[in-house]
């Protein structure tokens, strides 16, 4: 019993300690954002790495999610004779929840894990130490550009995911299931609000998710034990922790935004 309590205490202390180090890391990175201003091309390269390279998975998933939403929504709505509201259902679910959340989860799996592995390997192969010895601060030169790129890339990816999803839902609902073309769009337009749904959902949520996922990924990589096992474990932790963080935060944000 005491052993159980002790191990619980140990685990909690260890996670608090990690949280503390993670926060210090976050502050250190934020403090160095200013050094990026004359070096925007570094951010550009990272937007390519985390954004453009995640595009395929985002577009494909977005299309399928939209089509499935249309199929499922249609089945439910048609029993109430409200199939015209399909556009609203698809658009609201995508803009408020599925767009930002699924894009963030995919981003964590595709770009987050890659960031952790990259930084972790740079640590393991002494590249970060070498930078320090070359009088180059790895936090400004390596971490900060990736951090900014993540925050820029995810909102764009979420917007693309949502738009592609709605088009997918349209193709499936109107093209396949025979929902009225005009009703699909007009119902959507009268019920989806620019600020409340698209602003809060797609833009604000995904900026916050981008920040959190990128932060976790970079911290895990930077903090990884510099061995192959250490980097592998850190990569797994990135995907697990950032997915949980996204889902948890989504609940809190939804509570704050839509109530």
């Amino acid at each position: 019993m005491t052993e159980l309590l002790a191990s619980l205490g140990r685990t909690s202390l260890a996670s608090f300690e990690r949280l503390g180090r993670g926060s210090l890391f976050f502050c250190a990175v934020v403090a160095r954002l200013g050094t990026l201003l004359p070096r925007l091309e570094l951010v550009l390269a990272q937007v390519w790495a985390v954004g453009v390279r995640s595009l395929v998975i985002i577009v494909v998933s977005g299309a399928f999610v939209g089509m499935v939403l249309a199929l499922q929504g249609y089945n439910t709505l048609v029993t109430f004779g409200a199939a015209e509201s399909l556009g609203v259902v698809v658009a609201k679910s995508l803009t408020r929840e599925l767009g930002p959340v699924l894009a963030a989860l995919l981003f964590a799996g595709r770009a987050g894990s890659a960031l952790t592995a990259e930084i972790g390997l740079m640590r393991a192969t002494e590249q970060l130490s070498a930078l320090e010895m070359m009088a180059i601060d790895p936090l400004s030169r390596v971490v900060a550009p990736r951090f900014v790129a993540g925050i820029i890339a995810l909102p764009l990816l979420a917007a693309i995911f949502t738009a592609v999803g709605i088009v997918g839902g349209y193709l499936c609902g109107v093209g396949l299931l025979g929902v009225d073309d005009g009703a699909f769009w007009s119902q959507m337009q009268s019920h989806v609000a620019l600020g409340a749904d698209i602003g809060n959902g797609v833009v604000v949520k995904s900026i916050i998710f981008g920040l959190v996922v990128t932060w976790i990924a970079l911290f895990e990589g930077y903090d990884a034990i510099p061995t192959s096992e250490g980097v592998a474990a850190a990569t797994t932790r990135t995907v697990v922790n950032s997915s949980l963080a996204v889902l948890g935060l989504d609940f809190v944000l939804t509570g704050l935004m839509f109530n």
Binding site: A163, V164, I198, V202
Partner: peptide, 11 residues
Amino acid sequence: ALVMLSFRVAN
């Protein structure tokens, strides 16, 4: 995509 969402979806 954002513009499409603003005009086409949210009107």
